[in-house]
Amino acid sequence: MKYLDIDNWNRKQHFEHFRTLTDPTFGLVADVDVTKAYLSSKEKGNSFFVRYLHACMKAINAVENFKYRIEEDKIAIYDVINASPTIARKDNTFGFSYVLFSEDFEEFNHNFQQEKKRIENSTNLFPPKYSLGCIHCSAIPWVSFTGHKEPFSGNKNDSVPQLSFGKIKETNGKKILPVAINVNHALADGYHVGQFFQKFQQELDKID
C-alpha cells in the first residue's frame, strides 16, 4: 500500500469540495448481461453468484480510483481490492465475509467457499479479519430493482464502494442483472463508474 500525492493530483479540488458535503456519496443502477456467466455456472456446477462476483472483482481491480481509500487526511492506494459480500444463513440472517481476491477463478472460488462455511457455522456478523482494501456487496435476488439506496454511517471518510446485485430479468433472450453501485464522490466520478461497468461487461463476456 502507498499514499496518493494529493497536492499534485488533478482531482485535488474535487476531493476537497466533496469532503465538505454532509453526504459525499453518489450511486446509480445499471444493467449487465450475465448470460454467459449464468450458462457457464450451470454447465460447470459453479455458483452463479461467485462466477459474476469474480468478474466484478476483476473489473474493480482494473479501475485505479476504486483502489483509493480515505484515511484521515490521506488517500491510501491499496495494491489489491478484496471482496466483502454478505453471505446468507439458513435462518435468513447473514454474515459479512472477507474473500481474498485472485485473478484465478478456482482460487477465488475456494476462498469464497471457505468464508461461506465459516459463516454458516457461526452467528457472528463480522469477519475475524478485515481491511478497507475491499468492496462491500450483497445479492438481492428477490427483486429486479431499478433504484437502490445504501445505508450511510454519517462518516464522510467512508470510501469503500458498495454494490448490490438484483434479480435476473429476461430481455430479448438475454439474462440481465441490475447492479447498484455507491461510491464516495471525493475519490471517484461518473467516468470511473462508467469504466467499471465497461470492464465488468468485458469480463462477463470472456466467460466460457
Rank of each mutant, 00 (worst) to 15 (best):
N10G: 12
P151T: 14
S138G: 11
L4Q: 05
Y3A: 01
G27C: 02
P151D: 05
E203V: 05
I81D: 00
K167D: 09
V80Y: 08
T20E: 03
F165K: 04
I140V: 13
D208L: 15
H54C: 05
Q202D: 12
S153C: 05
A62G: 07
E71H: 14
K74C: 01
I168Y: 04
H192G: 00
V183I: 15
A139M: 11
S102V: 12
E107M: 12
L163R: 04
S41Q: 04
F26I: 12
A76N: 07
Q113T: 15
T93M: 11
G154M: 02
H17V: 14
A37V: 07
F26A: 05
F145E: 01
V143F: 13
G147F: 10
K36C: 04
N182K: 10
E72T: 12
I207H: 05
N92A: 15
I60H: 00
S138K: 06
V179S: 01
I181Y: 03
T20I: 03
F145V: 02
A30Y: 05
C134T: 14
L187G: 09
L21K: 08
F15R: 00
Y191C: 09
K156H: 03
E16W: 09
F26H: 02
S159V: 10
L100D: 10
S47N: 01
H185T: 08
I70D: 00
C137I: 10
N65V: 10
F49V: 04
L204P: 03
L163F: 11
I60F: 01
N155I: 14
F15A: 00
N8K: 11
E72I: 12
S144K: 04
Y38Q: 13
H17F: 13
D158L: 02
D23T: 06
P141Y: 04
R69G: 04
K167I: 02
V193W: 00
F105R: 01
F165L: 07
G45N: 06
K58L: 07
D208G: 15
R118C: 10
E43P: 03
Y78S: 11
D5M: 08
F196W: 07
E64Y: 04
E72R: 11
Q202I: 11
E16A: 09
E120M: 14
I135C: 01
L53A: 08
L125I: 11
K167G: 06
Q195E: 03
Q202G: 05
K175H: 07
K58F: 12
N8E: 02
H136R: 15
E170I: 12
S131G: 02
D91Y: 06
K90W: 13
Y78E: 00
H54I: 03
M57D: 00
S40Y: 13
T86Q: 04
R19F: 03
Y3E: 13
F15D: 03
G147N: 14
K117E: 15
E103V: 05
F152Y: 06
S102C: 11
F94N: 08
L21P: 05
